[in-house]
Simulated assay, not measured.
Amino acid sequence: MPLRLAALGPRQFALAWVGGLAFAALLTWWLRAGNSASVAFVFVCSVDNVPPPEFPDVFFTVALEPLPVYLLLSAAAAYLLLWLRVRHAGRGRLFPAWRLASFMSGIALVILTVFGPLAAYDRVFLFVHMIQHFILITIAPPLILLGGPMTLLLVAAGPQRRERWIYPITHARWFELFTNPIVGLFLFAAVPILWYITPLFESSFTNDWLHFGGYAVFLFAGIHYWWPVVGGNPTHWNLPHPVRLFYLFALVPIHAFLGSLFYEPSRVLYQQLAAQPRLWGPRPLLDQQIGGAIMFLAGEALGLIATIAAAAAWARADEREAKRHDARLARERARATGG
């Protein structure tokens, strides 16, 4: 079976993808028409037909959007096909099974975060949206990048396709400037701040395109931020260890600011959330404070963990360099003695 998947040509893959897209569109229309379904103990509906939150139903309600889910599954399928093709071509040493598991875990985490249980109530509870924001911008991107998707694409494409289609983009001056870590740091800070302090967040309650587009932007900002510090993908920017340490430590003040933005006010910031019917769960102000605490505590913890990991990597690199230096001196002394 893996060999058959690896041998699947672009035309067959395109036909299968179009067929799946048509099915996802049909399922979207069916759900948007007000229909729902129960699969085992899970209630499946659209975002427009989510019932008021009740315990324990909130943990078994899924607001499914077939088209975005299908696009994410398509990315996972494309990665799997390229991974099998590269392994079949004898380049499996570059892409061990753990890279496949990491990429798939990242995609699965995105799907569960945006469409899984409890996510159906991200327009009711602010703390749910905070958890989604934190996962999409800080947890899922490193998992996806550890899979080395860009390197996999370069290897699977072959020399001719790389020279003709990929290198003209990745070697372009505009691409080098856009992938600058300063841009990634700016996006990591600016995207959530602008999302919450402008009318965008409240507008997303009634605009599905803006709602899911916001999730996509959060994920993109996270991938851009983590790209220079997660190995396995080509980059124009190799950050020195001191710069990398400062770069990762920026997680701490950014999340601290976002946490204080919601925890400190003594009034509800978003009246549309306060107006939502709640048969279960925290009241609007407590919900807002829980969201701020989650962002502050989780952000601080992750920032410190990432900084400690970067410091440990720096120490290991210095140790390796010292060993190389000692070995070089030993060789020079041996040559001098022999002479």
Rank of each mutant, 00 (worst) to 15 (best):
T337C: 07
P199V: 04
V183E: 05
F55M: 03
F257P: 10
R91L: 15
F103H: 01
P56C: 01
I131K: 00
P228F: 08
G116F: 12
F127Y: 13
A317S: 14
A77G: 08
D57H: 09
A327M: 12
V230P: 05
A216F: 14
G158F: 12
A75W: 14
V114F: 07
L297A: 08
P159Q: 00
G184R: 01
I308T: 05
G90H: 07
Y247N: 03
Y247H: 03
L210R: 04
G158T: 09
V252H: 03
P52Y: 03
P10H: 00
E319Q: 11
L5T: 06
M130F: 15
F59S: 04
E202Y: 06
A315K: 07
F220G: 02
L153Y: 08
V47C: 03
E319K: 02
L80C: 09
R173V: 13
Y270M: 05
W227F: 10
Q288R: 01
R32Y: 15
V268L: 05
T28R: 09
L109M: 12
H255D: 07
G338S: 12
W209L: 12
P192M: 03
A301I: 15
G232A: 03
P253C: 04
S203L: 15
L302Y: 13
Q276N: 03
H241W: 15
A301E: 11
S74H: 09
L219T: 08
R267M: 14
M295T: 12
L258F: 14
A322W: 14
W17M: 11
A97L: 14
G19V: 08
W30K: 00
I144L: 15
F186P: 05
F246A: 11
Q271F: 11
V58F: 09
K323L: 15
L152A: 01
M1R: 03
G232V: 05
F134I: 07
L73N: 03
L219A: 06
I182C: 04
M295K: 00
R333V: 14
L82K: 05
G116P: 13
L152M: 04
